[in-house]
């Protein structure tokens, strides 16, 4: 099904354009459409296409205003949730914040683990660090706040929650997300092709390992 998405186009200097949509799903749909059109050669040259929570940024455009005038008329296909390979990430649900997350959800830690690994996730967008994906897929009621005081160091491979998102820290860094588990999966390796295990649109499942 193709439809016209409600959107607002916002100026970002004279080389870029920010498109704001009503929801993360609409942003994913527009991002997929932009990639299709770029692959088909029907998009003006653009250096970067950066999806985010409710927006898509197009950077390195010759004529942002020209594209801004065209975009709102586009018919955009709904994202197809059930296509493409699934990346499985083995997880030990041994994070120091698992009990607190379970309390916030009003369930036992064991039930919290079941809820988390039963969900099918998609990478909505990346940011924060190379290879860090913001994964959506948990039902809305399972959103959790960030920690009041961020940790100065979160170990690489930490599986963590914040707001509606799940993420995996590609390398050790400061972080304010709630840590529920850990993985040995290598999220980011510049020597590997592709370097990022997770890219926008990738489907993800977390598979429990010992320690759950």
């Amino acid at each position: 099904m193709r439809r016209v998405l409600p959107m607002r186009t916002l100026p970002v200097g004279d080389r870029a354009l920010l498109v704001e949509l009503d929801s993360g799903a609409d942003a994913e749909a527009l991002h997929a459409e932009l990639l299709r059109r770029r692959a088909a050669g029907s998009l003006p040259p653009v250096r970067e296409i950066v999806p985010a929570a409710r927006t898509v940024l197009l950077d390195g455009l010759d004529d942002p205003a020209g594209l801004a005038a065209l975009l709102p008329g586009w018919e955009v296909a709904a994202p197809r949730a059930d296509t493409g390979a699934v990346v499985e990430i083995p997880v030990r649900y041994d994070g120091p914040d698992l009990a607190e997350v379970a309390r916030a959800w009003g369930v036992s830690p064991e039930a919290a683990v079941r809820i988390h690994h039963a969900a099918e996730f998609r990478v909505a967008f990346c940011g924060f660090a190379p290879g860090f994906g913001y994964l959506t897929g948990l039902p809305e009621r399972y959103g959790v706040p960030r920690r009041a005081t961020p940790r100065t160091s979160v170990p690489a491979g930490s599986v963590a929650l914040a707001g509606p998102y799940t993420g995996v820290y590609p390398r050790s860094s400061p972080g304010g997300w709630q840590l529920v588990g850990s993985t040995d999966a290598v999220l980011w390796d510049p020597e590997r092709e592709p370097a990022a295990l997770l890219a926008p649109g990738t489907r993800v499942r977390f598979v429990p390992r010992g320690g759950a």
Partner: peptide, 10 residues
């Protein structure tokens, strides 16, 4: 503000 894309010079 939910996270959004940034550019050089922002």
């Amino acid at each position: 503000l939910p996270s959004e894309g940034m550019v050089w010079g922002a």
